[in-house]
Design a binder for these strands. Structure first.
Length: 577
RNA sequence: CGGGGCGUAGCGUAGCUUGGUAGCGCGUCUGAAUGGGGUUCAGAAGGUCGUGAGUUCAAAUCUCACCGCCCCGACCA
């Protein structure tokens, strides 16, 4: 490709809409342009990089034995009714109507479609295992699209669905996808950590997310450098010390006046001086329209994902102040669970043997001290409910846990039989008995992965593409583009030869000053720049400049071989194959 | 949806407090010089000041409503 003939609208200044570095560089390097919030056009260069990522995904899925299909993005609502997700997913479902006013949905994911397909086509254990995948545009009515391609209303996803006859085989399918994902992200030049993920109220035994560590990520992962434990904060547990049971007779709860004290923090100050770990925090939630109390140690934070698991429902919300007063007779800041029997109480495991605790007295302006949980509070459900904090000991090996923000680029999930039962994907097993297929689902955000590569690989001058996903591997930069100049003739012949050798190469044939060309090629981030100019040509040399390395002068006649050798070395370094 | 911020040329912005001819930089076009790190000079094109209503002799500027975008929270690849 000749630079002058494509469209690479680089920008010196960053559009005001971009906040994070990868979004800024996507725009500045001329890879994408926004149509409106959450909707982007891929320009020629951005599309090339995207296709490279897609191809890596495709190769590794094929290698893992998955079968590529293409399902409709436009879907009938009735299969969503059947799976029960028409309501459950209504917030993200885009709905459209045809001329007869019939409603359709734009697919945010394809469990319903693929399961309908399998229900019709697979009827014997002999036809399994099967794993179908597609690379396709998904539509989600995101509450808040942000950061360019990171969270968009429309994005490209690779989604795969496995169907197995037995639980054991389903685990094999899961493992294959897990391994394929590790290879895919490695080939894209991404450092990822696979973390245990929350399976939510859907149940399921296994779920892992592939995370790219980045300060701008929307997730937090907890990991241990000692034993390799890694989990999404929503799922993570730690070996943080619990209170020791205190032997012997304990003093009775005693009410004391705390005028104006309505926060945990206020109670830690004089004159009360009750440290956070000696307080019980009482939260009030409305779960399936019923009041529930949630107890945590004063210095702990509630993890709502864990609460969802404990409650067995995802439909819950913090109670409004009026609802709280109605239920407990006091306002937030003076709440407690002592002697509360009208509402179910969920308590964090860390409180199990706690004594000498202070909590609200359910009377505004008063607290209770000397509270012993086991004696004074009726706890209906004990559960792990707290957010793990950095520095707490790993529950497996005891080393301090670390917390890191990260971008989720992939998610593998063992689904079980939820969809196969709902949509009747049944088969006959060896004994002739009808069974629902055991499913797994596996997603990669392809467009998000592309942006994550940039987020992880850039410097002050621009993008630093890994060779595997670079829009062009080589950019030839002649410093004189006059057709009859020796410089341009050399550049043309290298361009021609590399093209014939199958290298993705772009020739910067613009009549621009050297500085402009150098800046642009670095901003866009081509892995190898080949400089052809009069000064080096006079010595019989051209200049090879790896994007992330030092300039290498080489003899003109060796140029092509050296470039290809450099590319092969780079490919091997990325562990391809 | 709740909270915060912002809408002025393709991009980045000044002007708004205190109403009176819409300005600058980048980019674009023409010409010239320059030619190994976003070069310089001269000239030019390009604006419903987000939309609508109101106040006023007069609105980018003041008021109200609406729309859009960005950031923080709930959701997810």
């Amino acid at each position: 490709m000749r630079w002058s003939q494509t469209l690479i609208p680089t920008l010196k200044e960053t559009p005001a809409e971009a906040e994070i570095i990868s979004h800024k560089l996507l725009l500045r390097a001329g890879l994408i342009r926004k149509l409106t919030g959450g909707l982007y056009t891929f320009l020629p260069l951005g599309l090339r990089a995207l296709r490279k990522v897609e191809q890596i995904v495709r190769e590794e899925m094929n290698r893992a034995g998955a079968l590529e299909v293409l399902m409709p993005a436009l879907q009938p609502p009735d299969i969503w009714q059947q799976s029960g997700r028409y309501e459950a997913a209504q917030d993200v479902l885009f709905k459209v109507r045809d001329r007869a006013k019939k409603e359709w949905v734009l697919g945010p994911t394809h469990e319903e479609v693929i399961t309908s397909l399998v229900a019709g086509e697979i009827s014997s254990y002999r036809q399994m295992p099967k794993n179908f995948y597609q690379i396709q545009t998904k539509f989600r009515d995101e509450i808040r699209p942000r950061f360019g391609l990171m969270r968009a209303k429309e994005f490209i996803m690779k989604d795969a669905y496995s169907f197995d006859a037995t639980d054991e085989l389903a685990q094999d399918s899961y493992r294959k996808m897990y391994d394929a994902y590790a290879r895919i992200f490695q080939r894209c030049g991404l450092k990822t950590i696979a973390v245990e993920a929350d399976t939510g109220v859907m149940g399921g035994k296994f779920s892992h997310e592939f995370m790219v560590p980045a300060e701008t990520g929307e997730n937090e992962v907890v990991f241990c450098e000692g034993c390799g434990y890694a989990a999404n904060v929503e799922k993570a547990t730690s070996g943080a010390a619990k209170a020791a049971a205190t032997a012997g007779e304990q003093p009775k709860p005693e009410k004391f006046a705390t005028p104006g004290v309505v926060t945990i923090e206020a109670l830690t100050r004089p004159p009360h001086n009750v440290s956070g770990d000696k307080q019980i925090k009482t939260l009030v939630y409305i779960a399936d329209s019923k009041v529930v109390l949630v107890l945590l140690r004063g210095d702990d934070q509630l993890n709502e994902a864990k609460l969802a698991g404990a409650l067995g429902t995802a439909t819950f919300r913090p109670a409004e102040p009026a609802e709280i007063f109605n239920a407990l007779g006091a306002h937030p800041g003076s709440l407690g669970a002592v002697d509360v029997k009208a509402h179910p109480v969920y308590a964090d495991e860390r409180l199990r043997d706690a004594s000498g605790m202070t909590t609200g007295a359910n009377q505004d302006g008063f607290h209770l001290r000397n509270v012993v949980i086991s004696r004074d509070i009726v706890v209906n459900h004990w559960a792990e409910l707290r957010v793990v904090q950095a520095g707490e000991p790993c529950s497996k090996c005891g080393q301090p846990l670390k917390v890191q923000r990260a971008i989720e680029v992939g998610h593998v999930f063992k689904l079980g039989t939820k969809y196969s039962i709902a949509l009747k994907a049944l088969f006959l097993d060896e004994s002739g008995k009808q069974q629902p297929a055991i499913m797994g689902c596996y997603g990669i955000g392809v467009t998000r992965t592309l942006q994550a590569v940039i987020e992880q690989s850039h410097d002050d001058n621009g993008i630093v593409w890994p060779l595997s996903v670079a829009p062009y591997a080589v950019c030839i930069t002649p410093l004189n583009v006059a057709a009859d100049s020796e410089v341009m003739k050399r550049a043309e012949s290298i361009y021609k030869e590399l093209t014939q050798r199958g290298v993705d190469v772009i020739l910067d044939d613009r009549n621009e000053r050297p500085g402009v060309k150098f800046k642009d090629s670095e901003l866009v981030g081509f892995p190898i720049r080949v400089g052809v100019g009069e000064k080096s040509l006079a010595k019989g040399e051209i200049e090879i400049k790896p994007r992330a390395g030092a300039l290498i002068p080489v003899k003109v006649e060796e140029a092509v071989e050296r470039i290809i050798a450099l590319m092969n070395a780079g490919t091997q370094a990325k562990g391809q194959g």
